[in-house]
Simulated scan of single mutants.
Amino acid sequence: MIDKKRLALILSCFFLLIISCEKREQEINSISYYNKVNEIDSIYRIAKNPELAAKEYKALFKEYAPKNQEYIEEYETYIKLSEQYNIDFGGKESLYKLITLISPSGNTYKKYLPLFKKYGIDSTEVKQRTALYKNSLNHILIDSLTVASHRDQEANRQDMMIMLRNDRKNLNLFLRIFDQYGYPSEQKIGTVGNDGEPLAIVTILSHLICLDHKKIYPRLEEYLKKGEIPPRVFALIIDKYYLCQQSEHYFNVSSGLSSHEDSLTINRRRKTIGLPSLTHYSKIREDFLHSAQRKMNY
């Protein structure tokens, strides 16, 4: 017979193995989710088959918890197309998910009020749910990050001694935040700090990764795999690091290709973190900006 100590050790190892496998599966799934979204978005945006895209999204969101990334807006697109082609998207419960996902984006919910009303969700309930989201934000984090944002831009980063002093303070702050709260995503802190000032998280991290790549990069990579930081945000920060090194545009999120850079290589890099190809991303961004311009003209 196996004695109790040996049995406890075997069970402990077994549970550690399960936890390790679940963690690895989660990491794989996050990148897999983003790449599947890109495939479906290309069906919608490039192949011009929106009905098929809606059906593919429906299957995807049965397997994965939905996200609603900036520019690509996959969950909004799914609901919009499903409604257009009479595809059951889950009705009220799915709309509640949408409200939660778009709550950080200010008044975005207003354009969906007719759809919410159609499914029995009036504007008062939408505002109440949005208010609940705002009340759920981590205000300790918001206070700290408001201070960090001010500190990051002190003296417009023109005084080297002040800049380095503040970046070191922010580095220590962010390492504590990572240990205690994980990545400070919009779902945790929203988009604005105290007194309505923007929280410059990406800008700060772009400076910090240049200050100490070894401490910042592994944490960001971890949060990317966990699905806490969107691929586009991760890529923006990494591209800034390579800019600090006067090197290539590693993921090429916001810059045009220079003559010596290989688009195939960049596209392979982009796929490893769940970003669409350069051509696909250009189309996504173009559509997003045109949509924003139409809203302004309206």
Rank of each mutant, 00 (worst) to 15 (best):
S263I: 11
F61R: 00
L264D: 12
A54H: 02
I46V: 13
F116Q: 06
I46D: 08
S291C: 08
Y34W: 13
C244Y: 06
D122Y: 07
G90H: 01
F15C: 07
T124G: 07
K188N: 04
F288S: 04
S206P: 09
N49C: 07
K62H: 13
D122A: 06
I177K: 00
L171M: 11
Y241G: 04
E248Y: 03
I177V: 14
K214Q: 14
V126T: 01
V192I: 11
L173K: 07
Y242P: 02
S94K: 06
I162W: 06
N38F: 00
N68H: 04
I189C: 01
K127R: 12
P50V: 06
Q26L: 14
E197P: 04
F251H: 01
T100F: 14
I209K: 02
N194Q: 14
N267F: 04
L264K: 04
V147Y: 05
K117N: 12
Y133D: 02
S30E: 08
H290N: 12
S254C: 12
T130Q: 06
G120I: 12
L236S: 13
E27A: 06
H260Q: 07
L17A: 12
K36Y: 04
M161L: 15
I31V: 11
Y34E: 04
I19H: 08
E74Y: 09
S82R: 00
E74V: 03
E125N: 02
V126F: 05
A148K: 00
Y57Q: 01
N267I: 10
L224V: 11
N68F: 06
S136P: 02
G120T: 01
S12H: 07
L220R: 03
V233F: 01
Y33W: 02
N86A: 13
R165S: 15
L145Y: 03
N194W: 08
F234C: 08
T146Y: 07
L205D: 00
P230A: 15
D152I: 10
E222A: 11
Y75V: 04
K214F: 13
E186I: 13
A54R: 01
K117P: 08
N49W: 00
A65R: 03
K58E: 15
I142R: 00
F234Q: 05
R232V: 10
N252A: 12
K110C: 11
F174R: 00
H150I: 14
N166I: 13
Y64G: 03
P104L: 04
I204K: 00
V147M: 10
R176H: 14
Y298A: 10
D152M: 08
T108E: 15
K48L: 15
S255Y: 12
G91Q: 06
D159M: 08
K118V: 14
Y241V: 07
I189H: 00
I216Y: 04
Y298G: 14
S185L: 04
N86K: 06
I99Y: 05
S105E: 15
D262S: 06
N29M: 05
E39C: 00
M163C: 09
I177G: 03
L289V: 11
E222Q: 13
Q246H: 14
P218M: 07
L236Y: 14
N86H: 09
K97F: 00
Y64I: 10
T203P: 08
N252C: 15
N38T: 09
D179C: 07
K4R: 11
I99M: 11
F15P: 06
A59E: 15
E286L: 15
L7F: 13
T77R: 03
D212P: 03
I238L: 05
Y44M: 10
C13T: 06
N156A: 12
P114I: 14
M1F: 11
L175M: 11
K67G: 05
Y112F: 13
P114F: 09
